[in-house]
Simulated scan of single mutants.
Amino acid sequence: MINFRYHVVSLTAVFLALAIGLVVGTAALNGPVADALRENVNGLRKDNSLMRQSVNDMQKQLESEEDFAAQMAQVVLPGKLTDRRVLVLTLPNGRDQAEGVLKMLRTAGADVTGRIDVQDKFINPDSNNNLLELAVTAARPNSAPASNLPGNGHGVETSSALLAAVLVDRPAGSAPVSEADRRSVLQQYATAGYLTPEDKISGAAEAVVLVTGQPYVDKDSAKKDESVVKIAEQFDRAGALVVAGMGSSGGNLVAVVRGDPVLSQTISTVDNANTVQGQLVTSLALAEQLSGKKAGQYGVGDNAASLLPKLPQ
């Protein structure tokens, strides 16, 4: 009969054999496996280093291109907008590039009549009734009769029409808006939190640059994007208009204008106004509108006709 001691010795021998096998196997494989892992790690480090260098090179290239555009602006812009009266309107999503756009306009010689920041409250759907009431009663000056304002009950559209009437040249044959009326209208919209004039408005403009950005993404995004289009439409009816934007997809104002066969005939767009190059092109596009009465779609995004307008020979 096999006794208990025999079982113990047998099990011990089995476990000892397994242990010896593991040690021998590990020792045999340790060199090749470790070498392979080490080689993979070194390869990943090298790839990471190359990618980091590529990113750095691209950043340097971008900075060089921006520097080049800034220097070229001093060559191609002076005189392009001399004595042209330009109003700059900035939407909440276009604030970051507004200063760059203004700088290029002044380099081109434009007489910037002022900069006005449109606040989020202006395009908030909840403000519709208040904007409508303000436009047709409280803020309306005697020199801009309500009969000339849209009558469809859209507060942003009606207020934009009134603002365009007091901030942009009146049609030929119409009485100009007085400075007192202009100040009064702006003051009432500013007091209500709809607009922020960044400086004193020096008079009526003949052209407008509307600085914007990406489309809205909140629950009211569709209505807000629609209101932004209404602003552009009303100022386009009053004078030359260039939309200086960022990107041309997702339903932002640049994309809407380019996709509309009517708006794209009268409104110029620049889809990279967040860059120095785009800010330069914004001034050129405005000069083309004022001198050639031609609208164009410029930049690097979808449906752009070219990078910039054709420069006169």
Rank of each mutant, 00 (worst) to 15 (best):
K200R: 15
D225C: 11
S184W: 01
V217Q: 15
A192W: 07
E233H: 01
I201Y: 02
R183W: 02
G213M: 05
Y216R: 13
K200V: 15
E233W: 01
E226D: 14
A240D: 12
A222C: 06
D220F: 11
E206S: 15
S221Y: 11
D199T: 14
G213Q: 04
S202M: 04
G213K: 03
E233M: 04
G213R: 02
E226V: 08
T191F: 15
A190R: 12
V228D: 09
E206H: 12
A190H: 09
R182P: 01
Y189H: 10
V177W: 00
L195C: 05
V208T: 10
K223Q: 14
S184Y: 00
Q234K: 11
Y189T: 08
R183S: 14
G193L: 09
F235C: 06
V209A: 06
S184C: 01
D220N: 14
A180D: 07
A180C: 00
G203R: 01
R183V: 09
P215N: 07
V211G: 07
S227G: 10
E198C: 08
V185W: 06
A207I: 10
E198S: 12
D199F: 08
A204I: 08
Q187D: 14
A207W: 07
S202H: 05
R237Y: 05
Q187G: 15
Y216W: 13
V217H: 12
K223M: 11
I231D: 04
V217G: 09
A190V: 08
K200A: 15
G213Y: 02
K223E: 12
R237N: 12
Q187H: 12
V177D: 00
G239D: 03
K230R: 12
A180L: 00
D218Q: 12
V217P: 05
D181A: 05
G203K: 03
K230W: 06
E179I: 01
E233Q: 12
K200Y: 11
T212G: 03
A205Y: 05
D199P: 04
T212V: 07
E206N: 13
Q234H: 03
A240C: 03
E198P: 03
L186S: 07
L186I: 13
V217N: 13
Q187N: 15
A190I: 06
D236N: 13
A180M: 02
A192T: 02
V229D: 11
A240V: 05
V228T: 11
A238M: 04
A232Q: 08
E226A: 15
V209I: 12
K223Y: 05
A240Q: 10
A232V: 07
G193E: 07
V208Y: 04
A222L: 13
Y216A: 13
P215K: 06
P215Y: 09
S178A: 00
A240Y: 09
R182F: 02
T212I: 03
D220Y: 11
Y216T: 10
I231M: 10
V185A: 07
A205P: 04
D199H: 10
E206V: 12
V177I: 00
Y189N: 09
Y194S: 04
V177N: 00
R182L: 02
D181G: 01
F235H: 08
Y216E: 14
V208L: 03
V177E: 00
D225H: 09
I231R: 04
K230I: 00
G239K: 01
